[in-house]
Design a protein around this nucleic acid. Structure first.
Lengths: 325, 325
DNA sequence: GGCCTTATTCTCAAGGCTAGAATAACGCCA
DNA sequence: TGGCGTTATTCTAGCCTTGAGAATAAGGCC
């Protein structure tokens, strides 16, 4: 034991091969819809990704390089999400090879046409249709709820049963309880464990619903949908206390455009007067003097982001009128 | 380019050796002081850590194994913090070897005596004395502020100067602005960049303060102090909206003990009646019927954590009377 | 019994948030 | 040219939360 302890760091030099995969969730919002940059391969979508290599100066540099190579998209804001280690869930790995997967979130302004043939901007609700509550409760949730109920009932023990019930309640909520937009990953993981998404069968774990019912929503390569879920969850959390939405906005915009962008990300609608009061009250935007009539109705003022706020003590702020539950 | 793209995943099999280091910040609170489990080596402390190896089923399993081997401490709650890739800042790595460092946060109830000779529970403010405001503003901040001011003045350009000023203002605040307990990592990184912590000199980067003034606070091995800062920051953020403090508490306790534990972590004091109102109002604890006179004065009720709250829709809640800025 | 210490409960004012109403300014069309 | 529809923008009343201090309770100790 003591020997193992002393050699802990010494061993590093002779470490067995571990490979590290960098994957990016590149987000933009176009025409009030949240988009993610996907690589379309044979009938399944993937995130831009590639292995971390020695020539990369940093993890983030490696990520940027891969994304640019694969999509010609240059990244601005980038943030690390999580390092996944259970590679059994990703590409069928060689016997001894260990693959770690580090997910990143990147934000870019309005989506440009994709730079390469098989890179494409796709609405992220294509992969998570149950996450879009902007037009009310998605009807498919009835079917999901029914399948999850079966899964709960099929628990091996009463204790397990209680646990499963609780997880369903906490992630998908009940009919009466208000929707919580943040636990995107928890919801996806639940569906995975319940065998209600194709990835679960592919990875041939727990049997899943015998009937073979699959929730709507497109699967992705390897564990990419899990990484995307992590990204959406992080972004939904972050827009509530950091002014990151502006990374997704053009130079000037009317306030309603900002609101629609936030709504696209959060998947819920907000009260217009309150949204405006918060944004203006916190001095996040300033008037440009310009107006636009492109919105129909009364012309809207054009504002711009006050980037000074990033230098002010405003470490916090940018609360949004989305109930933190 | 297109070739590189296609081979992205194929290359993984022939990936060059990358080693991954797992490090744990194991936290306990004893006698109202926040403690971290440290390995004491020749005149410098280290976190329990070791390389991720193929026999480890998951990253977390590898971490638990290393911690148990090195400290005999069995971990309960564990959470991944961040994956650091700029190994230039850690152990002087061999020419081509790339070392990634994954940091974890673990919480255990009241610290037991350390299980091995060189493992020891140490007050975390030993490493970050400026983070403890429980007894008012630490006096050393005067000296830190002065050094940072010099560093700002020494900026290569006026634009840089403005940026540095802003960073200092946002992390350490001004004399008048209230202290923000969360940006622990940002403060440490700032001191590192300004050359005010020994690690900066060791890694021989930016010159640093010519005078050689170093802030108080003990350094740690490799990038371990950075990982510890990340852990403290995460914990300070998390206790404000998730009931994780209870991982650190004994089975039953008086409310003031809970409050002191929170204060130890956050490094600030809170208003007693308000704290009590929040904790009880959210149904986080229930009466045990017992009382204790160990606190002096009027006997205190003993309460216990209502673990049911973890199964209730209470995904959020547990707000604390610590201003979110 | 009086005093000290800590526990526990109340209260009040300030500030923030929710939700809905009211008003403004433009294009369109009869 | 005036009414209508659309979106923009501003107000407001009511509710709830939060911050801070005061008041009361219950033990130990002398």
């Amino acid at each position: 034991m003591r020997a193992a302890q002393r050699s802990a760091h010494e061993q590093q030099a002779v470490q067995q091969a571990i490979s590290v995969d960098l994957s990016a969730v590149v987000v933009a919002v176009t025409k009030d819809e949240p988009k993610v940059l996907a690589i379309r391969t044979n009938d399944i979508d993937a995130l831009p990704s590639g292995p971390f290599e020695p020539q990369h100066r940093t993890l983030e540099a490696g990520l940027r390089a891969w994304v640019e190579t694969q999509t010609r998209q240059v990244l601005g804001y980038v943030e690390q999400l999580y390092t996944f280690g259970d590679s059994g869930r990703s590409i069928a790995a060689g016997a001894n090879a260990r693959v770690l997967s580090i997910g990143y979130l990147a934000l870019v302004p309005e989506a440009q046409p994709a730079g390469t043939a098989n890179a494409e901007w796709r609405n992220w609700y294509r992969y998570f249709p149950w996450e879009d509550w902007r037009n009310g409760r998605p009807v498919m949730l009835d079917q999901i709820a029914a399948s999850l109920k079966e899964w709960c009932a099929a628990a091996p023990s009463p204790a397990q049963r209680k646990l499963r019930d609780a997880r369903v309640r906490m992630t998908f909520g009940t009919r009466k309880s208000p929707w919580n937009d943040e636990p995107v990953l928890e919801r996806y993981e639940l569906l995975y464990e319940a065998g209600l998404v194709p990835e679960a069968q592919r990875d041939s774990r727990r049997g899943g619903a015998a009937g073979g019912f699959m929730t709507e929503g497109e699967p992705m390569l390897a564990d990419h949908r899990r990484i995307l879920a992590t990204a959406i969850a992080r972004l939904r959390g972050k827009i509530k206390y950091r002014p990151v939405v502006f990374e997704l906005m053009p130079a000037t915009f009317p306030l309603l455009h900002l609101q629609r962008t936030v709504e696209a990300l959060a998947g819920v609608r907000v009260h217009k007067p309150n949204f405006r009061r918060l944004v203006e009250g916190q001095g996040l935007v300033e008037d440009t003097g310009g107006v636009t009539t492109a919105t129909g109705g009364r012309p809207a003022r054009l504002v711009r982001f006050r980037s000074e706020v990033l230098l002010e003590g405003t470490t916090t702020g940018f609360r949004l009128p989305i109930a933190r539950k």
